[in-house]
Design a protein around this nucleic acid. Structure first.
Lengths: 333, 333
DNA sequence: CTGAAAGCGCTTACAG
DNA sequence: CTGAAAGCGCTTACAG
């Protein structure tokens, strides 16, 4: 590429750097003949001003960075889609930094890296303490957590403990044994989200209050349909007879349902997230106010940017239970 | 937040800005007692250096920006996942700028905006001529197109024309009328990807070469299963009897298949993309070398950053046909 | 080992 | 209307 800056270009055009800058920024009071010269030099060289210098000067980038674990799940689509219009309306852009495969973790320790060029930072589902070795986000602009919480940061999250409890309480209405299908997680890893752990705690508490316990727990490595299917098969091979599968994600629940359908078995199933397919597949699920959470968080960030936030704010939203056919005993089509 | 810079902090600590900078960057030859003072002031004020200034000075950000239409489809997941390891290995981060809903288009005209802070830019599926009013990307660093092409830019794309032709030729083996299900697109809009148009052209050419024509064309507004289902219903209500549905996306094809299953009808269906569900649903589909495309593009960007690219390069990859049950006439389970 | 100064590439008062 | 200069917030030779 070219190695010009605004000064070399200015001398090339026979004007001052200030004039080049004015032309670049569409300042209307540049005399036509000078403007002409600048435009010509611009054309000639293909010169482009350095955006880093421009926004250093301006003191802002009109962009909000979002660091999130991944982008290929329904949860994050819904979250991002709910934040986007708020940012847009306020004149901000959104930059996404997914931690695909955990590669990035070390890079985001570097305060120079692009996420921190934004005017504000959103950390979704990530625990700052685990993400940052030194226990501090290397960023001096507004920081907001979504789908996690931490005492030092603004946060918007879902009451996962209550979600778990709701699910347990629902199944406790029936006498069949309750089998949990959960996710195997690396607790120490930077990804480790407290979500599943908190749901578990809620489930345990719900059970305890009724003097019940889990008949069994199966952990899968991935939140896919296949995992649910396998887990259900494994369990039922060793423990035939009706039971209730409490799945920590709808994808798992769907896998379980598929297995039951194939084998013409009758068991109850319940999932978490109220994924779009939960409705069409008649899966009982814990519905999370994802859009509401995203929108509130986004509004809060904008308020922070406007200097309208004066106290540390931590908002917890309440999940609800969507009862559908899968937690009744179904009959086959 | 604090309104400090490195100089105010320096005087607060009783040292020079240079020393503060050295401490900030872990320079080992700062005497302990000075380092102490600086660390103390840092602690006191919570000061963080401005990353924009730091990378202005450094001249780089070690980040590659990707502007893409959306992030919630299998196509982009596969594309991004194939680029990521290449960037990571070369020490670069990836920043995602999805054009969710087209909001951003105007913002990306602004050369100051965050995408252009990256060291290189990837434009996925977008036509620079439509995206940028002035027909020029406001960026002086390396630019690479993926899943589109343009004579002025490096590009890695799939031979969509050939993909269309392959699909048509496959169906031409049978005598049943061919019905196309495509996407209604705003041709002028910034999103308008040439992909569908090119597939159409290939299909038309394939048909022409055999002296055949389409029995009908149905356009849907969204690439979802529901659209395919509706389209199939609409067509079959008015034209009962076997036909062949040529769907411009697998999601559409899946919808068609669902409708056929529900009604116990027998028609052939073929889709595009070889979506993961195509295999499990036995859908014949045009398979695109997405991962290969992503990986090649990523490698090329890295080469450009290393100054190892000397000529404009345009790579076109060839799709293949995956024949499965859906383009034979199936029998019901 | 440390500081004053120059400079990264811009923009914007300030004179003229 | 235009230019020289100061400054955005850093870092890094260069002296000392």
């Amino acid at each position: 590429m070219n190695k010009h800056n605004i000064h070399t270009l200015a001398s090339l055009a026979g004007v001052s750097a200030a004039t080049v800058s004015r032309v670049l920024n569409g300042n209307p009071q540049v005399k036509p003949h000078l403007k002409e010269k600048v435009l010509h030099a611009l054309e000639e060289t293909g010169f482009r001003p350095d955006p880093k210098a421009q926004s250093l000067r301006a003191g802002k980038t009109r962009t909000i960075s979002v660091i999130l674990p991944m982008i290929d799940t329904d949860f994050y689509h819904r979250l991002l889609h709910s934040m986007e219009p708020v940012f847009d309306e306020a004149g901000y852009d959104m930059a996404l930094f997914p931690l695909v495969g955990g590669f990035r973790v070390k890079k985001y320790q570097d305060p120079t890296s692009l996420p921190y060029h934004g005017d504000a930072l959103i950390l979704a589902s990530l625990d700052p303490d685990k993400l940052y070795a030194n226990h501090e986000v290397p960023f001096r602009k507004p920081i907001t957590l979504v789908d996690t919480h931490h005492q030092h940061y603004h946060s918007f999250s879902i009451h996962n403990h209550q979600a778990g409890k709701l699910a347990a309480q629902h199944l406790l209405l029936n006498r069949e044994p309750i089998v949990l299908i959960g996710l195997r997680q690396d607790e120490a890893g930077p990804f480790a989200s407290p979500v599943f752990e908190e749901r578990m705690e809620g489930i345990q508490q719900g059970l305890q209050e009724q003097g019940r316990t889990l008949a069994g727990t199966l952990l899968v490595d991935e939140l896919g349909t296949e995992g649910g299917r396998q887990a259900a098969r494994l369990w039922l091979e060793q423990h035939p007879g009706p039971c209730q599968f409490l799945c920590l994600a709808d994808t798992l629940a769907l896998g379980v349902k598929r297995h039951l359908q194939e084998r013409h078995l009758e068991c109850r199933v319940i999932g978490f997230d109220d994924h779009p397919f939960a409705a069409t597949e008649s899966l009982t699920s814990i519905k999370q106010p994802i859009e509401q959470m995203g929108e509130m968080a986004a509004r809060h960030v904008i308020q922070q940017l406007r200097g309208e936030v004066y106290t540390l704010q931590s908002t917890v939203l309440t999940p609800t239970l969507k009862i559908r056919q899968s937690s009744r005993l179904w009959t086959h089509p």
